[in-house]
Amino acid sequence: MIHVIAFYLFAVMTVASGAITILSRNPVHSVLWLILAFFNAAGLMILVGAEFIAMLLVIVYVGAVAVLFLFVVMMLDIDFAELRAGFVRYFPFGALVAIVLLAEMVLGIGAYRAGSLTLGTPNGTAATPAGASNIEAIGALLYSRYLFLFEAAGIILLVAMIGAIVLTHRQRGGTRGQNVDKQNRRRPEEATFNVKPEVGKGVQL
């Protein structure tokens, strides 16, 4: 029973926050509603037993993608009212896209009713071993069978990082960085001196 309640709760929240994402006028609010939609979708994933995908949704989509959207929306000064202004002009094109999508959905459902495609049967590695949660199963595969490729993928990320630095980093002249060593070597006697000015005269520096 609790399953059913949880499912409807998450499902209704997902659909509702998805709808508000589209409808809300303020783009920042849209992104916040999108994050709520992601969280509820993660809840649905937990209900079907795919806890790894649930965590990916929270970490990747909420943690990275949605925050990135938020930054972009807040930093770029986009006038959304102006973007919406061309609605009538772009309506035929939008309608065309909608019709194509509708036709594809009708075809897809028809094909689904007609029977499923004959796909290949997964060999042993693709099936979850009994008694293991799917995080354990993925981890065990990733760090044993696919260890080599996992490490190689790490090198790809490193190459991407080097590339970004090579293409954007430049030495700026004229900046005055902190030199800790020089600061530490400085003694009081170099930095201060005592003078005894005569009455009526200033200090000669």
Binding site: L149, A152, A153, I156, V159, I162, G163, V166
Partner: peptide, 13 residues
């Protein structure tokens, strides 16, 4: 795919 991407990313830079 991993080999191809490693080569390509370095090549783009």
């Amino acid at each position: 795919y991993i080999g191809l991407e490693m080569n390509s990313l370095a090549a783009y830079v």
